[in-house]
């Protein structure tokens, strides 16, 4: 199975690079030169995708996230309600005082007893 997948991948990459030219009568050096040329045009395509698609996409998503997070921070945090299925402490966390989770945020995460600070 794995052999077939690898063979298939090799076959696909050969087809991919050799697609542009008839390689049956070429020497190995000529084939390599043709493949290198073809790879160069593929490289340019992906470079263009990176610069003209990926960078704007990241910038738009970053702006969108910035606006959403800013808006989110204007909301008051949810009221502390004691639920049996939340803030479970069957045993102490192995770090610190054993009552704070690893990424504990005093503003956002309540302890079993309630929030540690006042909302602001």
């Amino acid at each position: 199975m794995a052999a077939r997948i690898v063979n298939r991948l090799n076959w696909m990459s050969r087809r991919f690079y050799a697609a542009a030219v008839d390689s049956s009568k070429m020497t190995l050096a000529e084939k390599e030169a043709a493949e290198s040329k073809h790879a160069e045009s593929t490289m340019k395509t992906w470079k263009n995708v990176s610069i003209f698609v990926a960078v704007p996409a990241i910038l738009i998503c970053a702006y969108n996230a910035w606006v959403k997070e800013k808006e989110h921070h204007t909301h008051p945090r949810p009221e502390f309600l004691e639920y049996a299925h939340l803030r479970i402490r069957n045993k102490a966390f192995p770090w610190g005082d054993g009552n704070h989770s690893l990424f504990h945020n005093p503003h956002a995460n309540a302890l079993p007893e309630g929030y540690e600070d006042e909302d602001h």
Partner: peptide
């Protein structure tokens, strides 16, 4: 945003790969 960042890194790694081949 993280999805955009990770998908973009897939494009840049392919750019690097074809640059190595050529």
């Amino acid at each position: 945003l993280n999805t955009a960042v990770l998908l973009s890194s897939g494009a840049t790694v392919t750019w690097a790969h074809h640059a190595i081949i050529s």
